[in-house]
Design a protein around this nucleic acid. Structure first.
Lengths: 202, 202, 202, 202
DNA sequence: CATGAATGAGCGTTCATTCAT
DNA sequence: AATGAATGAACGCTCATTCAT
């Protein structure tokens, strides 16, 4: 049983309509968060965006606000993963993969601005730190340490470097979101260059 | 002198008690923001933290919530500035100053955790982006370009680098705040090393 | 259909219970305004009068205070119109119609004291002057000018006369409301006589 | 001892400064009421208008809000009386005096708009009906009955006529206040003509 | 499966008034 | 004679959540 099950909705399997409704609500939530920010996102606004007549509908399909936000996070993360993963997979070697990670992340901002904005908003404002934050940290430290073991990266503290990279990614993502005129690909390359130099073996 | 004055309190000069009360409320607000986050910070909570009997008290001393938050920002910024500035001033050269900036910022987290956390919370969640965000960006790009002109930094895009540095600083600050067991000085040095390599002339 | 809809209640059509609740709240509001005056009318008092547990209930059914007051105005105006209109329609000629208007208005005070008092209170105290105030002025000046053109009224300034008539009506209405012992029909006739003489052609 | 004495201020006689302060506050209150309306008139606004640093000052000199409003009423009534009385006194006969009363009242609107506006605002919005309302009613019925006894007025119901006249006056005053472009003298003559015809003996 | 209705705590803010100094 | 500080109730309004139907 998933942790985020609706209390009165179907407990185990979801029917087709049930899933469709949830998806519809999640999409509306992403749109609202992207447009108005996390703080200004209420069930009322989401219901309006989704064309629902009452907020009761949302509470019926999601156990509570955290449940809905979790689902939004899952969906947005999925979209991001599906964009970034193949680009990383196509690159060879630890250094190239890191570069692919950073560059594709910046391209993602232009490809799916709503999902990215929602992801950022939730990561920064949600009361409980979502799991994907730690997950992402683990992925980066793993990659960095593996590269160090392979002699491709220098002898830096991998935890500190992971934090720096993640922070830089997020800050640049936000910058790009709020400045649509900036060349995302160029800034992506700059970011990749920056950490390419920073992680280079001496 | 701030433009925002208390609605019924003394308009021009502040009496001793007035200033003391304001300081007390600002301190309480910092504590609440640091502990519960910006979104969960209400006049009710601040009043309770400050030992005041009602929220009317706060409204008496501050024109509105923005006024109070502005004062919190001023105070927290002041503390941060007074900590970081002398350490930067003591360093010589563009590279050393950048290093001093990064290292002292991490030390600041341990010296004034509440102020730092409050600063982060407000910067990320406040409805109106506070001035110091843009200010900080301008300071970094200025420093980086000056260093480039002096031949001390490489030919990177200064805007992109500034975003990366600021993002890395903030992410690490938050990481340190939530992980008191981490050696802030060490992480500060790692961060400084990271951007020392990243900005090195080729 | 009114432009102002409840924020979370049904947007387009109203269900039966919805309409019933709105009517109940409007009735309670009329009662409160009539008894305590516009300035002392709060959601809290209206909720108490209506037997509702909280003011949130009112906000659920009405977008805001203006929306509720607007509905009260609509209802009270409707009652007044339905009382006065047939009596005017039954009269023949400009002079007789004016008399019917004045007399029936005074009878209305005894038939629907609450609605009349509420109407007066809102007209005088509401932040935004309701449309019906200007509307009434227009109706009177129109009637007076038409009568002058037909040679039934004298050559007075129709605007000034309309103001005088409306002011006299309202003052007498209030007087009757606060003095239930007064014979409304007699005062209505006196008022009609007064303006019959005042508007007579020389 | 006057009914409206300050609780801690001088009980019997007023010192010079005391009286000056009261007058200053009353003047400020008139200005505020005239500009913002009764409902939007608070001690805070009055204090600001008067250049006082706190509302405590007002509470010190006046027992409560009613006390202050009463004083405002007294002052505004005095001004109105001093304007209207000599003009009535200069007229001879009941009919001429009535005409002088109505015409001078309209001229008063242009001569002392602030005082008139304050008077109207208080009369309509104050929680307790001020004495001067009944007083004015008494003056009118007295004059009308005296004129009837002298055979100068017709056999109308004096109470009803007084109500009509007072209502017409107030409505026209308000109209003039909100429409500065209207010729007050002309409308005053029209109003006088209206009630001259209405009160004429048959 | 879905809904409309209701709930009640909480929000920031304003207010007239009190009172020690 | 005056003041700055404090009070606490009340305001309109929003919110996530509940629940009978």
């Amino acid at each position: 049983m998933p942790a985020n099950a609706a209390p009165r909705g179907p407990q185990k399997g979801r029917t087709f309509t049930e899933s469709a409704r949830r998806a519809q609500i999640v999409a509306a939530a992403i749109a609202v968060i992207a447009e108005h920010g996390y703080a200004a996102t209420s069930f009322t606004r989401i219901a309006k965006q989704a064309g629902l007549s009452s907020t009761g509908m949302i509470s019926y399909h999601f156990a509570n606000k955290d449940d809905l936000i979790g689902e939004v996070l899952t969906e947005a993360t999925r979209v991001a993963y599906e964009f970034i993963f193949p680009r990383m997979a196509a690159a060879t070697g630890h250094r190239a993969k890191l570069r692919a990670r950073l560059e594709s992340n910046m391209e993602l901002v232009r490809a799916h601005p709503g999902h990215v904005r929602a992801l950022m908003e939730i990561a920064r404002n949600a009361p409980t730190t979502p799991d994907f934050v730690d997950e992402r940290f683990g992925l980066f430290t793993g990659h960095l340490r593996a590269g160090q073991d392979a002699g491709k990266f220098g002898p830096f503290n991998a935890d500190a470097m992971a934090v720096a990279i993640i922070g830089a990614i997020d800050a640049m993502v936000i910058g790009l979101v709020f400045h649509p005129e900036v060349d995302a690909a160029e800034f992506g390359r700059e970011l990749a260059d920056t950490f390419d130099r920073a992680t280079r073996p001496s």
